[in-house]
Nucleic acid binder design. Sequence first.
DNA 1: TATTGTTATACTCTATAACTATA
DNA 2: TATAGTTATAGAGTATAACAATA
Lengths: 156, 156
Amino acid sequence: MAESQKIHHFDVNDEVLESLVGYNLKRAYMIFQSDFRATLGETGITTRAFSVLSLIAQVTDITQSEISRRLGIERSGLVAIVDDLQEKGYTVRVPVPGDRRIQALSLTKEGKKAYNEAKQAIAIHEQNLLSDFNKKEVKQLLSLLKRLRKPEDSVT
Amino acid sequence: MAESQKIHHFDVNDEVLESLVGYNLKRAYMIFQSDFRATLGETGITTRAFSVLSLIAQVTDITQSEISRRLGIERSGLVAIVDDLQEKGYTVRVPVPGDRRIQALSLTKEGKKAYNEAKQAIAIHEQNLLSDFNKKEVKQLLSLLKRLRKPEDSVT
DNA sequence: TATTGTTATACTCTATAACTATA
DNA sequence: TATAGTTATAGAGTATAACAATA
């Protein structure tokens, strides 16, 4: 039994699954996701929390609804993320004069620090996972992945 | 407020996130995942169930542990999937003479039919999502995604 | 009427540890 | 000791519907 396992190589796998973009996207995504957790797990920053943190860092005074649209996360799901970031002291909700429904999100000093540290850790994590890729290949991969998104974005 | 939303285009988004392979993998994966659900949702076949079904179809008498290794799914998580497939009448667990720990999985007639139908539906779903890609580009994308997996596979 | 933020709920997927029976 | 299947549990992430306040 143990013998037969060692005989099986990567290329012996199910050809149907291996030919599906969806399946290969998932496998690749899982590797990045688990390595991301191993990298930022101790900080308590999840993938979603980082993406929200990053968006607030780039677009000051952004609202939750706007984040929801840009990241493709439901508004309802955002509440817990922002609550958590606020508990950690990384972000604050500031009332906006003129529209009392919304609150502008911005980073605290600690939030900026945490974001920059996370950003650096992620850069290293991506470098590790992409060590076999040259710059051109990474660019190509990013380009192809973005094109997969385009149809959906244009619908919005 | 509504004005400012319409002004924002794809390329105005967070450059930090957009430059990350992990983030772009996730966004692309989510599109495939949700379209997959819309396609196979009524049948009750999830992405994971299909991958298990497919593996059993290719490798007759495969065990749960072997599926676990090949698909990168935990053994514990497999139990519920196989239980569900069995409830639907798609698969059966057959005792293996010589090793009473394991049970070989195989498809029933209904399982084969369900698998083939699902396979066709998925082919259309992939064609739709990849309508802007030519054959060479799909091949390139698959190749890049598989290379992202390779380091992990070789460790095993 | 539409939008913002929110609550509640359920479901999928994942991760971990531990157990049993077998080898 | 190691492996196969299993149970239990917890945590992310997602999806949906509904609500109050505000526009």
